[in-house]
């Protein structure tokens, strides 16, 4: 578990995917908190994370994502 390292990196990725430099990744940050976060945006976010970390998620894992905390746990389990 290296939750502390994951969040700064996720912040960077979120900002790049949403083109919004005010976003800060936190475990409770959820889809409804971010404008324009739709299902396509989730997919783009996941694809970016896959490339950044060199990991691969299954479709069901992606569908189950609800907030950034879920995402961080998923990444950490793969590393």
């Amino acid at each position: 578990m290296e939750t502390n390292g994951t969040y700064p990196k996720l912040t960077e990725i979120l900002r790049s995917v949403f083109d919004d430099d005010t976003l800060v990744a936190s475990p409770t940050l959820a889809v409804k908190d971010v404008p324009n976060w739709d299902s396509l945006r989730t997919i783009r976010l996941v694809l970016t994370i896959e490339k950044t970390y060199g990991v691969r998620f299954s479709a069901s894992e992606i569908v189950e994502l609800h907030n950034v905390g879920d995402l961080a746990r998923l990444i950490e389990n793969k590393l």
């Binding site: 790049s16 995917v17 083109d19 783009r44 970016t48």
Partner: peptide, 11 residues
């Protein structure tokens, strides 16, 4: 370009 860079340029 990665996908996010493409989105930025297109925008």
């Amino acid at each position: 370009l990665d996908q996010n860079q493409m989105v930025r340029l297109a925008k």
